[in-house]
């Protein structure tokens, strides 16, 4: 009760979302399911026996749902494809060999998380600087930072290849992590700056007057208010870096190869056309980490940008 009265006066939870019932759930579920269908098909393909991938009409479901779905749309689910991601015979009737995908998965996780976290730390500091201590020509700096995202990767890549070769960074973790950090910085800075700009200055001013240092204001007052922004930026950065293909193709060595590159090679090697079930199995496994991270950061994403502080 108290909460609703306070809410009307503009206190308590400053931002909130209206509640809706199961009717809304049903409506959204239909839309979300249709939206999800192409992904669902990829995931199902990962469980299909190899010969089933290109059947016409396509098989659509692992169960007949108690006879609801006609038999020719039903496939027998198998886990074989997931095994062949990590070890399979490369030549017809050869012995199964390790494909090195465990290493590629480790590379993807290590490179993406290191570079996105690094960009988040450096970028958030810079965004706070741009927002609170404007430099001479602040907008020009911000615009130059934005232009680094405007050109296709291929333009940057030729000088970067030459540079890495000279310096001895080609095919190393350090090189590709630094490159991805730079690749994420522009978005991180712009995004976090727009979140810092939205914060009410009142609390900060009060803290400054009470003698808090700039660092204390940043860590104790500003940072807790932009957690939603940090979560959103982290998720976007992770998704973009996770799936980045061109830089990884041209700059990673055999030890630092990431999954998208290896996936591209695995499914199109041997000149037999696309190996659909293998591709689907790799993609399904590759989806799991980023799916889980997004799922667990969702609460922060949806909590509201500002909460519990004085509004302008």
């Amino acid at each position: 009760m108290a909460e609703s009265i306070l809410g009307k006066l503009g206190f308590g939870r400053a931002s909130g979302v209206d509640k809706a019932g199961w009717g809304r759930t049903l409506a959204v579920a239909v839309v979300a399911f249709i939206y999800f269908l192409p992904v669902l098909f990829i995931i199902f393909t990962a469980f299909k026996p190899q010969g089933d991938a290109l059947l016409v009409p396509p098989t659509l479901s692992p169960t007949s749902l108690f006879g609801l779905i006609p038999d020719h749309f039903v496939f027998k689910p198998t886990l074989e494809n997931f095994g062949s991601v990590f070890s399979r015979s490369m030549t017809p009737d050869g012995a199964p060999e390790a494909t090195g995908f465990d290493r590629y998965f480790f590379n993807s996780i290590f490179i993406a998380s290191a570079s996105v976290l690094l960009a988040l730390v450096i970028g958030t500091l810079a965004a706070f600087g741009f927002s609170r201590y404007p430099l001479k020509g602040n907008d020009t700096y911000l615009f130059i930072i934005l232009t680094t995202r405007m050109l296709p990767a291929i333009v940057v890549i030729i000088p970067v290849i030459l540079m890495f070769r000279v310096v001895g960074l080609s095919g190393s973790y350090l090189g590709i992590i630094m490159l991805y950090t730079a690749f994420n910085l522009a978005f991180t800075i712009w995004m976090m700056k727009s979140f810092f700009d939205e914060l009410s200055p009142d609390v900060e001013d009060a803290a400054r007057i009470d003698g808090s240092s700039g660092m204390r204001v940043f860590f104790k007052i500003c940072l807790p208010q932009v957690i939603a922004g940090l979560a959103a930026t982290f998720v976007f950065g992770l998704i973009l870096t996770w799936n980045e293909f061109l830089f990884a193709l041209l700059l990673s060595g055999p030890d630092t190869r990431t999954v998208p590159v290896a996936m591209n090679q695995a499914v199109s090697s041997g000149g037999r056309g696309t190996d659909w079930t293998l591709l689907a199995a790799i993609e399904t496994l590759f989806l799991i980490p980023v799916f889980l991270v997004t799922f667990f950061l969702q609460n922060h994403l949806l909590r509201g940008v500002t909460f519990g502080t004085v509004k302008r």
């Binding site: 399911f33 990829i42 799936n243 998208p260 499914v267 591709l279 993609e283 989806l287 997004t294």
Partner: peptide, 18 residues
């Protein structure tokens, strides 16, 4: 919500080929 977000998480290599 996570169902709707998933298309963004797919690698273009896989989703494009599919």
């Amino acid at each position: 919500l996570i169902l709707v977000l998933t298309p963004m998480m797919l690698s273009v290599v896989a989703s494009g080929v599919f």
